[in-house]
Amino acid sequence: QELPLGEILDKYPLQNRWALWFFKNDKNRMWQANLRLVTRFSTVEDFWALYDHIKPASKLSCGCDYSLFKDGIEPMWEDTQNKRGGRWLITLAKQQRHSKLDCFWLDTLLCLIGEMFGDYSDELCGAVINIRSKGDKIAIWTREAENQEAVTHIGRVYKERLGLSQEVTIGYQAHADTATKSNSLTKTKFVV
């Protein structure tokens, strides 16, 4: 896709164009009707203009999500670029909403738009934050759960970038397993 001339001259371009989505749980409507595309961006400056304009994740109501995905990939398992993939999942304790949630989410976004996984960044589809009363969740989604080398590299780098200690482990789940099992039964495919 071609950028407007002003973007080329004045702003730092990103490797990918990204789309921010917002989900608000309204039980009277179908799941997909609750999912809205907020906007797309493809420069560092436009990312910050968006990020500084919207509510921090910690201020969203329970049941809401933000998702940031590469343009052209919808934030759902069914998308062809997601369906063979999975996610590295960070589960936060309730009290971490105030201390850690916004920092973790911002660092997650910066990992994505900065292509901080190097050539393995091609494996990334996006990231999701779920605001839930029983505990918030942040996940990065990759496109192929069987690519063990790429998936574990991404997991190790991600954990380091979030500043998680070595005693903490994070797990990777294939969407195919998440879709068919209840949360507590979903098997963890990889751990870092």
């Binding site: 730092y12 371009p13 990103l14 560092v44 910050w48 660092d107 910066l110 738009i113 900065g114 292509e115």
Partner: peptide, 18 residues
């Protein structure tokens, strides 16, 4: 091709630049 990679420090510095 060449990948455009930005580290965290650079991205954070861009936040408030004019």
């Amino acid at each position: 091709g060449t990948r455009i990679i930005y580290d965290r420090k650079f991205l954070m510095e861009c936040r408030n630049s004019p």
